[in-house]
Computed example of a mutant assay.
Amino acid sequence: MSHNANLSDGFGSSNVNEYNEWEARVVQENRQLDVIMSELLISILNISGEARLMKDYFVENPMYGEENFRGRFRMQKPLFLRIVEAVTANDRYFQQRRLSPLQKCTGAMRVLAYGTLVDAHDEYLSMSVNVTRDALVKFVEGVISCFHEEYLRRPNQDDLARLLHVGEESGFPGMVSSIDCMHWEWKNCPTAWAGQYVGRSDKTTIILEVVASYDLWIWHTFFGTPSSFDDINVLQRSPLFDDVLAGQALKVSYTVNDRENHMAYYITDDIHPSWVAFVKLINSPQLRKHKLFVEHHEAARKDVD
């Protein structure tokens, strides 16, 4: 015999209905209480995570000073705060108060700075894996949206004139920047792709090609090429000289040994091919002038290194 049937025998159908309504109200109220307690607990954890972050880095006398901040975030604190302010104003995602903009941006920046998993800092910042992943994507999108017009572009005529002036002051008239390639380990490379991305080190890596100037401005990046390539044949895929081939390169004029030239060049190591666009390092210099050239060459290349 059912529970409701027993109640009906003792109390009547009206009492059974009242009991059912009371039971339903209790279940609903318990559910509401569970939601309130969960939100309260999350709020407490978020507040503690934000308070911990503020105490460690962002109060007037933080536990970790400017030097520690730069070492852990790979940038100065004023620059980081400028980025936080820009991406917060640009995207409502960072304006939502469940987590502070500093928590979200710090979580994203820690993943970028150390290349760690998204769950590596969840306890410290009181952020779940999903929130950290979303914050990372939104942070990268925000940086690109806010700063691409200024920092993700090729040099204009004024920039080129400044770069040529600095190059001439360094003893390299006509030099615009330094170029170099490096092999970057790809820890999470898909198994199906691993074979083509394994290089000399027997690790899955990709090639990163970069052009950087004296002020550490990165004018050109090209990455993703399998490590079975090298500094020479990666140029066959790189868009570095697309504007030159299309006849859209900026005009350059400089004089060396009383001869006027109209093609700018990059300084690079000895691995790159012997093209007019590259001034390479001299290996094992013997003559005094060659040694002097190597000294100036290495000093100018330290930016991209």
Rank of each mutant, 00 (worst) to 15 (best):
L7R: 11
L40W: 08
K55W: 11
V252D: 01
K289Y: 13
V304E: 00
K77R: 13
M1C: 10
I271N: 06
G10L: 13
P190S: 05
I206W: 03
N188G: 03
F222L: 03
E50Q: 12
P273R: 07
R162C: 10
D202F: 15
M182P: 05
P101E: 06
S170L: 14
K187I: 09
C189A: 04
V276L: 12
A194M: 10
E123D: 15
N261G: 01
V59E: 12
D305M: 10
G107W: 03
D119E: 09
S201T: 15
T116N: 13
G199K: 06
M182G: 09
S177W: 06
S48M: 12
V252H: 02
L45E: 14
F222Q: 00
A299E: 11
L208W: 03
E60M: 11
R31A: 11
Q95P: 12
V140D: 00
F147Y: 07
S38N: 12
F241W: 15
Y265P: 02
V294C: 09
E169C: 13
H296V: 01
Y114S: 13
F229G: 00
I232C: 03
I179Y: 03
S8M: 14
W217R: 08
S238C: 04
E150A: 12
T204F: 01
D159H: 10
F229Q: 05
F80I: 03
I36Y: 04
Y266K: 01
R72N: 15
Q32A: 07
C105S: 11
Q95V: 05
R70W: 01
P273W: 07
S38G: 06
A86H: 00
S100H: 08
A86S: 11
V294I: 03
R153I: 04
S145V: 07
I47S: 15
F139R: 00
R74F: 05
F278M: 02
Q248T: 11
N68M: 13
V143R: 00
E60C: 10
G71K: 12
W275V: 06
V256S: 02
L45Q: 15
E18A: 14
G171I: 04
N30G: 07
I206Y: 08
K291S: 07
N188V: 04
E209G: 01
A300I: 00
H183C: 03
L160D: 02
N20L: 15
H121K: 03
G167V: 04
W217I: 10
V35L: 12
K55S: 13
N30T: 09
G107Q: 03
H296K: 15
D215I: 03
N46V: 10
V27N: 07
L125K: 02
F222P: 01
E66C: 14
L235W: 00
L216G: 07
M127E: 05
Y114C: 09
N46M: 09
F293M: 03
E260R: 12
I36F: 08
Y64W: 09
I271G: 05
Q103H: 04
N4A: 15
E66K: 14
F69Q: 03
Y254H: 06
K291T: 01
V16W: 00
T88S: 09
F241C: 06
V234T: 05
N257E: 13
